[in-house]
Design a protein around this nucleic acid. Structure first.
Lengths: 189, 189
DNA sequence: TGGGTTTCGTATCGATCGCTATGAATACTT
DNA sequence: AAGTATTCATAGCGATCGATACGAAACCCA
């Protein structure tokens, strides 16, 4: 998983995986069928072990603003964990791919779209309870937030520290519309 | 350039380039030395022909807010041009790379860092003339803006339309601090 | 302890990678 | 027009890709 995370799907060779896992080629193929299946297993594992912060943030019983805050700050931390490759595997895994690996690139895009859809769902719930203006485009705003997270992933890959990513996240939060009842009133005082 | 833009450096084979350019292998090597040099030439050409909007926006004699607005909206248009690969070559070219292509990945990161530095320079000038609060961190805000643009690049690659990218850009602009004298006063009326 | 089976590592498969040597075809000079 | 020089495309170079065939070692059961 770390190798795919660091180098992407196509640039990670079987030789690298073999050395990292201490397995012989037949053992790898007996265990994972082929490289593509192994990568998909790594994706599943990544989803389960590295980005739980997202589901937690979006399902926590807190205000929409707080949920988004947790989402972005969680990303800042998850994308810059010491000892882990920078950024998000769903972004780094295969942003560009050869024609032979289009299926992998599509799979990763599906993961990214699902993340965006999950954000949109949370925003829609927030709008329904009055946390967000009724005329807010949840799709548009979800695309902004997903875009910011993707951008954080690249910044992390370029060496941004967790503190720098937190500042980025906080800055991005400033684009959140005022929550009307409490937040705006609070900042006036 | 389009092939590298679409598939990235490593996933673009000489065979694809040969067919696209209608050249035989020796002609390619006589003209461009090797694949890496060809890619660097493509980078230069991309910089000169596809992303002039950035330099224009940052050097135009307009307010800082307007400069940033032009920057982000220019990116929305440039990253979704019909007939061109989505996103930015500097992002798609080699986000993840094999150990052999680390030099290429570093080169692209240098381009991205230069873009961020150019934004920071513009913000610093804006702060100096009072367009931005004196206590604003230009580095942090530049990292936010560069991150948003990188995120737009990924959204474009995932199929976002120019309108969707414009909405994203407009949303990101909301994170800009009020300009104090004119902008805030205008919005109050 | 011997025999049959299963596991497993080595050596290698065909394909493709970036790149180049070599022979044919062209063009230029006298 | 003949000979020389140069260009240029084909064919193939060594290396590496993902994936596997095959012989050897280990194991289990009688």
């Amino acid at each position: 998983m770390h190798l795919f995370w660091e180098h992407g799907y196509e640039a990670t060779s079987l030789a690298m995986l073999r050395e990292a896992m201490g397995l012989t080629p037949p053992q790898i193929y007996n265990a994972f069928t082929d490289k593509e299946t192994l990568f998909r297993k790594a994706l599943t594992r990544y989803h389960e072990t590295e980005i739980g912060f997202a589901l937690e943030a979006l399902s926590a019983p807190v205000s929409t603003r707080e949920a988004i805050r947790r989402l972005l700050l969680g990303a800042a931390e998850a994308y810059s964990r010491p000892g882990k490759p920078g950024g998000c595997l769903f972004v780094s895994g295969a942003l560009a791919a050869s024609p032979q690996a289009q299926a992998i690139a599509d799979e990763l895009r599906t993961y990214r779209k699902a993340s965006e859809a999950a954000i949109a769902d949370r925003l829609a719930r927030g709008r329904a309870v009055g946390d967000l203006p009724a005329d807010l485009s949840v799709e548009g705003f979800a695309k902004y937030l997903a875009g910011v997270m993707n951008g954080m992933s690249i910044q992390a890959r370029d060496g941004a520290s967790v503190e720098e990513l937190r500042v980025l996240a906080q800055t991005a939060l400033a684009a959140l519309p005022a929550e009307g009842q409490n937040q705006a009133a609070l900042s006036k005082e």
